[in-house]
Computed example of a mutant assay.
Amino acid sequence: MLTPHYLTPNPDGVLCATGTRWAVLMLHGFTAGPQSVRPWAEALAEAGATVCLPRLSGHGTTVSDLAQTSAGQWRRDVQQAVDGLLARGFDKLAVAGLSMGGTLALDAASHRRVDATFVVNPGLSFKLLDRFGVALSPLFHRVIPTVGPLAGDVNKPGVAEEAYSRTPVAAVQQLAKLFWTTRRQLVDIDSPVTLYWSSRDHIVPPSSARILRRAIKPHLLTTVVLERSFHVATLDYDAPTIHRHSIAKLLELSGGHRETP
């Protein structure tokens, strides 16, 4: 069961000056937790947005819990969180996420009333060698239930992403299902999408960004290349760029002037 956690907006934040009440649903990545996106969430709250920072099902507890969680449950988690924010009467709603959280944000934007989407290195495909492992996983996941970690890809020294030390193979199968479902629905997104893409990502392949660029209407997609960060860019050198740019985009969409990041 998803338990939403809300970050209270700063009433003196730049977004509040426009009179537009923004809600942002912020989603973490696969095997990790809210810690990996919390600095981004705090930056948006300081700027004046109400940020919902939930922990997705199967995360932050045990590897065995994640192994028993389905892609459908992650999608329901997000849908319920979006519907809860919509019911609270905010003027505008954005969804944002890192990695699998970005995938789920795109999924939500395809079938919910979302005004903006921000994704950092979203997963939509696997590396070539990983595809073979995913294809064979139904055959050997009972023999080899877990593999090594899929987290912690940070360039900045001394920074760690809190995540499981093992990855359940059954959950990787569910991740593949989520990728497939989301890819099919990308063409239904009709609101602005910002892609923050690390040029040196060791987890998500460049094909994920190419899939997104092909599917989203060109006038809706903005791409910001992150030259200094690895996969977990929300904790890496380019995190301040993500903060400044996303705040400026929300300000622009609420009628304010867009600041240069």
Rank of each mutant, 00 (worst) to 15 (best):
K127M: 13
L128S: 14
L128F: 12
L129E: 08
D130L: 06
D130C: 08
R131V: 08
F132A: 15
F132L: 15
G133P: 13
G133L: 13
A135R: 15
S137C: 10
S137A: 15
S137F: 06
S137M: 14
R142W: 09
I144Q: 10
V147E: 02
V147P: 00
G148H: 06
P149I: 13
L150A: 13
A151R: 09
G152Q: 03
D153M: 00
D153K: 01
V154F: 04
N155D: 11
N155Q: 10
N155Y: 00
K156R: 15
K156Q: 11
G158K: 00
V159T: 14
E161D: 11
A163Y: 12
Y164Q: 10
S165A: 13
S165E: 14
R166K: 15
R166N: 10
T167G: 07
T167M: 07
P168N: 13
P168Q: 13
P168L: 10
V169P: 11
A171C: 11
V172H: 05
Q173S: 12
Q174G: 04
L175V: 03
K177H: 10
L178M: 09
F179V: 02
F179R: 06
W180F: 08
W180P: 01
T181F: 05
T181M: 10
T182Q: 09
R183L: 09
Q185G: 05
L186Q: 05
V187W: 10
D188F: 01
D188L: 12
I189Y: 00
I189M: 02
I189E: 00
D190F: 00
D190Q: 13
D190K: 15
D190E: 06
D190L: 01
S191Q: 11
T194M: 13
L195D: 03
L195N: 06
L195I: 07
Y196V: 04
W197C: 11
S199K: 12
S199T: 14
R200F: 07
R200V: 12
I203F: 03
I203N: 02
I203V: 15
V204T: 11
P205N: 09
S207M: 03
S207H: 08
S208Y: 02
S208T: 08
S208W: 00
A209R: 15
I211Y: 03
L212D: 01
L212R: 08
R213I: 05
R213Q: 14
A215E: 13
I216F: 03
P218F: 01
P218Y: 02
H219S: 11
H219Q: 15
T222G: 01
T223E: 14
